[in-house]
Design a protein around this nucleic acid. Structure first.
Lengths: 318, 318
DNA sequence: TTAAATTTTGTTACCGCTAACATGAACATA
DNA sequence: TATGTTCATGTTAGCGGTAACAAAATTTAA
């Protein structure tokens, strides 16, 4: 293994100068810097992060806490994880994937938490003293990253309005959480602004439940209608309901989802949905957390990502 | 932060004795051991893994290399990851999620690789000098973990035979890899053993492609037939094809999948499939890798997990 | 009883790196 | 020329832990 001492020897400088070149290059003269860089290159030097972690009293580990039941949300998280991983790699951090049960195991420099529900604040999050970033909007003053949920739902609702639908059902998730309130608001504001009536339904985020509910509504179908759903999973159920009742998609029934991760493309027909740039959001989470760690826990605020409407055959003919 | 020295002071012993209690307790007398344990408890001592990593020249990091396109396989990997994470947590290891591009970034003590194809051996794997475990069977002498693919396919094929189907299509994935050969063999051996003809199709692992192929076959449907598919994704396509042709599932057309992760339950009807115990397999991967690291790279052989047939409405009435 | 062997415990040095301080050179000021 | 002031570089010590050796305590053998 090549160490800082090897580099120092080859460059005929002290270890400290090499260390400075790496961490505070502005303090070193250009001549020496060049010598050191050349030596590093020649020896293929790679810093030892365990040593650095030891001296700076850090771990180079961050935790990713998933508080939701994972199998209801899997495909979504894999992308998020990929984004987080990408940014962490770049900074020589590694991560631990933890759940409620395993979150206390081992040390870390900070945490990204997702699937946080109201009741988690007092139990899980309060205990945690290291920097933390939430994935998913929060109204408790925590730093977070999320897509602009309200705007996303405005986009889908406006989309079906523009297609001439006047009976527009909202199929939401039965959670009293900020992201759902925002999506609901996006729907309500839009139908109100067009002077259309609203039809609110809230249910478990499950394709079967959505299928059942949609079937009931559609069983005595009379006029064309649209379902704007709070998730692709729910949209999937609605599509199946319409198909089993032999209703034409998208002419008699139009359906929109939310997320744009995986399920929208598994469905047939593909689902018009709001794409969340999940990978980029993962990167942003990691970046924000690393910055927060570096700045000694200073609050980083929040950031909403721009939602993107993907128009697909569940609302329009190709 | 509580260190080994704090414990030593409280227990009135040397640092070394504390270290020994942790790593080689058999070398310490019971009296001192008790003193040390009490002190550790009282102070809530947690070892510093960066320090340990430094002195033992390890990183406490393992990499998880995904060589497949991730969005074709996401749901599967999330579970695998969960399993790996669980076992690593227990051993105070963290991990890095890497791809072809990022695999050289940072150090590690070993790697778990998945989605490995024939051409990867000479390019990616040969370069890597640390212990490595493959997820997915291999015929190149690498240590690996997989489900018993051959047996899994025997189970689904035998299942549809037992339901009275005599025309049984095999919808495989167009990859010349050991796992596919094994699944194919499981199908062929079974139909042969019953004196039934075989019908082989191989295609991209995509529900759309499968849908198209199945539609062609089913468009002039005459007799009841079954499709044993090499993935749930392909099975999903076949089910959609049958439904769009108004064929009754499971009476006129029966369908089985493979994997039992996520997609089997997204489908309607749910898919009869082979459940792979993916979480446990992930744990096993991690355990095997840690053992290999500990034993200085010694070969660990391989392990096949038992596949489990899940019977669902895509082959039988509920 | 005493030397030798064995077990238990302590001391030292070092893993690779960096903060804090020490030194020395270059330049400005009086 | 003597005396600060900067700036660039080197020296020292220590982060928390463990291997290797040394010393002390105990057991065994003669």
């Amino acid at each position: 293994m090549v160490t800082i001492s090897d580099v120092a020897k080859l460059a005929h400088v002290s270890k400290m100068t090499v260390s400075r070149v790496i961490n505070h290059p502005e303090q070193v003269s250009d001549d020496l810097k060049k010598l050191v860089y050349d030596a590093m290159e020649k020896l293929n030097y790679v810093p030892n992060y365990a040593a650095r972690a030891l001296v700076s009293n850090r771990t180079q580990v961050i935790k990713f806490l998933i508080l939701e039941e994972m199998d209801t949300t899997e495909p979504y998280y894999m992308n998020l994880l990929a984004g987080i991983a990408k940014e962490l790699d770049r900074n020589y951090y590694s991560f631990q994937l933890v759940t409620r049960k395993s979150m206390d195991i081992g040390q870390c420099d900070g945490m990204i938490a997702t699937g946080v529900r109201s009741y988690d604040y007092d139990t899980i999050l309060k205990e945690f003293s290291k920097p933390i970033i939430l994935f998913g909007q929060s109204d408790r003053g925590y730093d977070f990253i999320d897509v602009d949920n309200e705007k996303g739902m405005r986009l889908t609702t406006r989309h079906v309005v523009s297609l001439g639908f006047e009976k527009i059902y909202f199929f939401g998730i039965d959670l009293q959480e900020p992201f759902m309130s925002a999506r609901l608001k996006g729907y309500l504001d839009t139908v109100n602004s067009y002077g259309l009536p609203n039809y609110l339904y809230r249910m478990k985020n499950s394709s079967r439940v959505a299928e059942r509910n949609a079937k009931e509504i559609l069983s005595n179908w009379k006029e064309k209608c649209a379902f704007v759903c709070a998730s692709d999973r729910i949209a999937l159920g609605v599509i199946r309901a319409a198909q089993s009742l032999q209703l034409q998609i998208p002419d008699q029934v139009a359906v929109t989802g939310f997320d744009g991760v995986f399920l929208d493309r598994i469905s047939s027909p593909h689902i018009t949905t709001i794409r969340q740039p999940v990978v980029e959001m993962g990167e942003a989470c990691a970046r924000m957390l690393l910055k927060k760690i570096q700045e000694d826990g200073k609050s980083q605020g929040h950031r909403f990502f721009e939602p993107e409407l993907l128009v697909r055959p569940s609302t329009v003919h190709v």
